[in-house]
Design a protein around this nucleic acid. Sequence first.
DNA 1: CCAACTGTGACGGAGCGTCAATGTAT
DNA 2: CATACATTGACGCTCCGTCACAGTTG
Lengths: 126, 126
Amino acid sequence: MISIAADLAEMHPQTLRMYERRGLVHPRRTAKNTRLYSLADVERLRRIQELTDLGLNLAGVERVLRLETELTAALDQVEALRRELAEVTARIRDEVRVAERSLRHDLVPVRSTAVIRIDRRDKRGQ
Amino acid sequence: MISIAADLAEMHPQTLRMYERRGLVHPRRTAKNTRLYSLADVERLRRIQELTDLGLNLAGVERVLRLETELTAALDQVEALRRELAEVTARIRDEVRVAERSLRHDLVPVRSTAVIRIDRRDKRGQ
DNA sequence: CCAACTGTGACGGAGCGTCAATGTAT
DNA sequence: CATACATTGACGCTCCGTCACAGTTG
């Protein structure tokens, strides 16, 4: 299995063994100690090659890979929070509109203070 | 100025010059071409030393530093969004409470539908 | 003239990829 | 027996930190 993984990643098998020894990849092992590389492993190997081609050290590659995962996680979190915030603001706007309409229609003889207050919040919320 | 910077960073002046040539640090220059290191530069030098002590390549150091700034920016953004979201939810809760109170106090003979609708939103909002 | 800066060139150690040798299982 | 895997040792190449030398400036 290491030969085809090396072929897919365009690297020497020895290099793959070295990377495993350094803890950069963790291929599965068969019962008879043969390395088994998953497609994710091969993909990681290609990523390692990109970084080493840029002149990166193996230690640097390791740290960069870890930082990249942290960064993508943080960016995903930013995206999720953005969506949540947009959803909440949209909901409050609908909320205000519904409340306003119900007040206007159902409670015609109301004192105008409550309605005015809600209107101001709506503008500020944008 | 390079000598005291090297002393503060516990590195050889030649190393500092090399780092500048590689673009890792950008010390200011005096009129007569002498390097001037700010405290931020020295701090960056110490960070570089930490990474190289971990076995990092210079290319790796460069990339790691860039990734770290991106990561901290993303984390700061996460923090800001979190705060904003908390603020918005808190404001909508106050909003509902104020509206509810004004309805209860000012408009006693109201049809109860509007009040009930607002109450449900408040619980869901948590 | 000395001290400290600038630059460039060279040397030694370490990391890394590859090759070679040897052993084992299919 | 041939093939593919495993491990280990050794060889070059490059990177990097340091030293050495030469030129400027205060």
